[in-house]
Structure formats: C-alpha cells, structure tokens
Design a protein around this nucleic acid. Structure first.
Lengths: 182, 182
DNA sequence: AGCGTAATAGCCAAACTTGACTGCACGCGC
DNA sequence: GCGCGTGCAGTCAAGTTTGGCTATTACGCT
C-alpha cells in the first residue's frame, strides 16, 4: 500500500488526483494499484487513522470529491513499509517461470519460437525506454526515474540473452532429462 | 491457475500431494499458489468441470482425502493458459520498484546502504543456486530446471550490477532533480 | 514408557483486487 | 442550436488470495 506515499507526496489530494498520478507513472503495471483499488484503499486507510479526511467540496453537479491528507501515524507507517521494501528483497510471482516449468508439455519448435518472440518483445520494450530517455519532456523529470528505467533495461537485457541461449538449446535437441550414461 | 498443470502431471492426486509438490518447487515464492489457495482452487476447478473427483478414501480417523484428475476440457484449458504465459510477457508487480520511486524520501546514506545490502542478498541467492546445481541430488532432476535457475541467476546478476552502480551514484551526491544549467 | 514435535489433510472467514458501470459537464464540429 | 465524444469522479459486486485454525497420527528422543 504505497498509496500512502503518493498522498504524502501530494497532500492534500482527492482520489482522482491519486489515480491520475499513479496512471501517469504506469504504476498500474508494476505495482498492484489499478484504478479500482484506490478508493477502497483510501477509505480503509482512513479507517485505520493513517489518513484523515480534510474536506468534501463539490464543483457543479459532479460527484463530490473528498480530499485526504496523511496523519502522523500514517507517515510513520509509510516509513516502515518503505524501509521494508528497500531492505528486504521479495520474489514477486512470475507467471513465465510458472509456465516454463511445464516446458516438456510443449512441442520443441513452439517452445523455442515462443522464447525468441519473448526476446523480441523485451527488446522492443528496451528500445521504447531508451527512446523515451532521450525525449524532451523527459528532461524535466527527476533523474532517478532514469535510474529506475535502467534497472528495467538491464534486467530485460539479461533475460533476452537467456531466451536466445535457451531457445538454441531447445532447438539443438538437448535432452530435458538427465542422460545417466554412468 | 497452474494448479491444473500439476494435477495433469501427477494425476490422480489429492490436495495434499499437490500442496507438497508445489512447496517442493518453492512455487509459493514465485507463483501465487500458497497452501491456503489450493483446496479452494481444486473445488472451483471441479465446479467448472476442468477437474473431476475420482475417489474419496479415508485412512484411519484422519480427514478424508479426495483425489482428482483432469478432464479433457481441463487439459485444453491448461494448454490455452500455458500458451498465454509463454507468448505474452507480463510485468508482475515489483514492490522494490514501488519503493525506489520514493527515493528522495530516504536519507542518502540509508538509501545507498540498502542498495548494497540488496546486492549482497541477491549475491547470496545466486551462490545458493550455484551450490545446489552442483549437489548430488540435483543430478536426478530434469535438466531444464537448471535452465530456469540460470534465468534467476542472470536476472539477479544484472540487478546486482545496477545496485552497486546506483549506490555509488547516490553516495557521490548526484542530484535527484535535473539541474537546468541552460 | 512418556512426551513433545512434526507431518497429515483440509476448511474458512476476512481481506484484497479488479473490471465494468454510472451520470454529469464541457467543448467542438456542423 | 444540437448531438456526441471525452474527461471527470467515484461506486459496486464478484472473483481471488490468504493466514490461521482444527484434530489426529507417527516418530524421535530420553
């Protein structure tokens, strides 16, 4: 629940602002914060007294929007959460690993083709990021965003190499099971 | 729902077997299949007619165990799911990315220390895997398990390099915001 | 023989996420 | 002057995941 972080960073804010900011960061892709979750989270955090409602204003006949700010307890909790994720490494679930563990179920040609396709997709992602880093609008963004992207790029590149190598192994009919020629 | 896969691979099985096998693969760490999910999933899949109950036997006064096997429809669905995860790459949520995006909130010394610690933890993980690959019991396992671990290792190594580099940047007081010395 | 601990087998209520949906206002082309 | 698409602001029900709980048996150690 790093929604706390955004609230702290932009307070006071209302739900829609948080949503826009997070979508702007593509946070729906790499954090588990899709638009639907936000309002629920805000209410739950308020209940836990980590946030506090500040006001409820109305513009025209549109839905009222409630603005929130963080409480002292919330700031503390946020720091704890944040430190937790900085210091402890966690292994997020990776559907591809899951799929790969069933390798023998697929015909070899399909498996290697899929790996090469995966490599290509990763490559495309890398190039998009590289492009974006050069773009004008990017220069106004904090520098460390660039550092973040570098991590993504380097992880991807490692994976691309692995994909190619593994595809080659599959194509060359390396056996899946150990040949016990003892 | 790659529980289908395990059931197909070991049928007929009962819930506890699936659980043991998955824990054996450390699947609770990289797939979203923790023990509690299994029985619920089995029932749900049975309801959808992707699985079929085979028998319910009882040993002593212990809880009865129900064994399942996969149906034709289930096998088909499994293939679809499997292909989906082989061909489409997905970006699983990464709590570290989330945490890193709040970099400026932490004091610089702590941030760089955390990064170095992270690198060390990754390194330890890599060494454990390397060790395991050499162990005796490992030689009986399918070869492609080794390939899977290589992916983990290479991803980790890329990340280690990034951690060190980024830690150095933070220590050398590189600014977080663009200095517009235009 | 006695006792603590681990393994067996499974259930459940609560929490979390999510995609889809609602209704209003505003600017724009025709 | 009139539809109409788009942005705003948020709700909701439904589906998933999960941590923790129960109760019995087997086993190792003293």
């Amino acid at each position: 629940m790093m929604i706390l972080g955004v609230v702290q960073w932009m307070q006071p804010v209302h739900g829609y602002d948080v949503r826009r900011e997070l979508l702007n960061w593509d946070a729906d892709k790499w954090a588990n914060v899709k638009p639907g979750s936000i309002y629920h989270a805000l209410r739950k955090l308020t209940e836990e007294e980590l946030l506090r409602e500040v006001a409820t204003e109305q513009v025209g006949a549109r839905p009222a929007r409630t603005t929130y700010e963080i409480t002292a307890k919330g700031a503390e909790e946020f720091m704890t959460l944040l430190r937790g994720n900085w210091w402890h490494l966690s292994t997020p679930p990776d559907p591809f690993m899951a799929a790969f563990s069933f390798l023998p179920v697929l015909p070899r040609p399909e498996a290697s083709a899929a790996l090469r396709s995966r490599a290509a997709q990763l490559q495309a992602g890398v190039e998009r990021l590289r492009e974006a880093q050069k773009a004008d609008w990017f220069q106004t963004k904090p520098t460390f965003v660039s550092w973040m992207w570098e991590l993504t790029i380097e992880r991807s590149e490692a994976e691309i190499r692995w994909c190619e190598r593994t595809a080659a192994r599959i194509e060359s009919d390396e056996p899946y099971l150990p040949t016990d020629d003892a």
